[in-house]
Amino acid sequence: MDVEQIGLPGIGLQHVFTTARGRRIGVVSHRTGRRDLVVYQLDDPDSAAVTVTLTPEEGDALAEILGTHRYVERLEELGRQVGGLVTEQIVIGPGSPYDGRTLGDTQARTRTGASIVAVVRDQRVIASPRPDFGFRAGDVVVAVGTADGTAAVVDLLTRG
């Protein structure tokens, strides 16, 4: 896949590429942080068919939604490549002892040997959460480690 990068003087940058199925799509990145998502016409790839303007927050949200799956896929791929390494996704339920407490409180790595590498909250991926990261009910915690280690994390986060 070839991503073409074009400068737009006075405005910012544009990235364009053609998908495997032949649609041309692009993103105009304004210096102000605004993003325009552009889908080009089928019969005239020089002309925009649809332009959707996104605020910086909306752009971030879209990027993370598009990136979420790849993130999890890549983790799973990693698990297959490295023998014995398992990824586990654990939902922090409303009754979890860690609802409202921080990642540091779990001492997960010391107690189980597995690492909490990401948290998915409201469809946003928070990669490498810091020890002061506070869990909320509904968070999905992604842990990586041995089968025993990740099982222990499940145990820890659901029962304490």
Partner: peptide
């Protein structure tokens, strides 16, 4: 909605 069009860099 013309910012993404191919001719826009030339115009700018």
């Amino acid at each position: 909605g013309w910012l993404g069009n191919r001719e826009t860099p030339a115009v700018l």
